[in-house]
Design a binder for these strands. Structure first.
Length: 280
DNA sequence: CATCGTACCTGGCAGC
DNA sequence: TGCTGCCAGGTACGAT
């Protein structure tokens, strides 16, 4: 999955093809993804004009002219494929198809089906169960060291696990949590509640910085992730620690033969990568 | 509430 | 060349 930078990249790729266009045909090629589609899914979208394509956390939000909002999540393996016309044959995991009055076709493809689509009403969007409990947007004006520290207060779990919790801060995933903790020089095993003051300032700045740089690079292309345009992102070449077990720490000068370089541990069932010398 | 383990689903890859 | 087991960007849910 795509984390915040990949979802942002997908939204930016979709916007020019969807905004201002009318959805002339919507196909739903199976009954459910991670959850069932809402009743009347295709009918409620067909004939509607798209006003905007936005992002909240890792959700894509497509606002339509009647106040309906299409909520889409890419899960781990979801992709939006844009083609100038309907493909000759459907792919094995092409689940939803949106065709615009320009003839452009957007196909939602998701092999693992951890993604989902739902419909909401614009006026009550923030109260939707999928969005209601989300923490602040890390690229928003309201996000800061003190805000982050406040949301970590009282949390006795690791800072790694806390940052993966979308109610603490929205949009981070397994890659960018490792990267942000490295940049902030904080150990992933540190108790979340101990990240206060200057440490929280460092972490908030690291989160914002790494997400901004990843978006500028078009996201990270690992395995099946691609931009909506089909292009690869390039941020994976800039990872400091993620998937770099045993590699030299880019911030340290110590001998890899002695330190073992970047270390991989498992927290809450997921890989974490970090430099034990540099991160405390 | 906070926290943890588990489940969901498919595909790619290393190792035999 | 198979086969097997492990791993993968996420989230929800139940148990404690």
């Amino acid at each position: 999955m795509p984390e915040l930078p990949e979802v942002e990249t997908v939204c930016r790729g979709l916007a020019p093809h969807l905004e201002g266009r009318t959805l002339v045909q919507v196909l739903q090629r199976r009954a459910n993804l991670r959850v069932p589609f809402p009743p009347g899914f295709c009918e409620r979208l067909t004939g509607r004009r798209v006003e905007s394509v936005r992002r909240r956390a890792k959700y894509i939000l497509v606002h339509l002219d009647d106040g309906t909002v299409l909520i889409a999540h890419l899960g781990m393996s979801g992709r939006m494929i844009i083609t100038p016309e309907r493909p000759a044959a459907w792919g094995a995991h092409d689940h939803v198809v949106l065709e615009t009055d320009a003839g452009t076709v957007v196909t939602f493809n998701d092999a693992r089906r951890f993604g989902l689509m739902d419909l909401a009403i614009a006026e009550t969007l923030a109260e939707h169960p999928l969005l209601r409990t989300l923490g602040p947007e890390p690229l928003g004006n309201e996000f800061s060291g003190p805000v982050l520290a406040g949301r970590l207060a009282g949390r006795m779990t690791s800072i790694k696990a806390a940052l993966l919790d979308q109610t603490v801060v929205a949009g981070l995933g397994n890659i960018y949590v490792s990267e942000a903790l490295f940049l902030a020089r904080l150990s992933p095993t540190r108790i979340a509640a101990t990240v206060t003051g200057a440490k929280a300032e460092r972490l908030a700045a690291a989160i914002r910085g790494v997400l901004e740089r990843a978006i500028a690079a078009g996201g990270s292309s690992l395995r099946d992730y691609r931009q909506a345009s089909g292009e690869l992102g390039y941020f994976q070449h800039q990872f400091s620690v993620y998937d770099r077990e045993g590699a030299p720490c880019p911030g340290c000068t110590c001998d890899v033969a002695k330190t073992g370089g970047i270390r991989r541990i498992v927290q809450a069932g997921r890989s974490t990568f970090y430099c034990p010398q540099r991160q405390r």
